[in-house]
């Protein structure tokens, strides 16, 4: 049974992402980017500490 606002023309929910093949890989890139930034900021904090 469909929900009340169901629209048959809307696309399927689980599409493959246009990059990297799977969503998990894209999420990993987001986390890796954050981790790389934190490393950079740690270096900046240490390098330019008063």
């Amino acid at each position: 049974m469909h929900p009340p606002n169901h629209d048959p023309d809307r696309p399927e929910l689980d599409e493959t992402p246009p990059l990297l093949g799977t969503w998990n890989r894209i999420y990993l890139v987001v986390i890796a980017t954050l981790f790389a930034q934190i490393l950079l900021y740690a270096w900046i904090t240490w390098q330019f500490a008063p």
């Binding site: 740690a42 330019f48 500490a49």
Partner: peptide, 14 residues
């Protein structure tokens, strides 16, 4: 410039 800011505690990112 960054070192001057750092000396006065402005580069305290983490």
């Amino acid at each position: 410039a960054t070192a001057l800011a750092g000396a006065l505690g402005r580069m305290n990112v983490l």
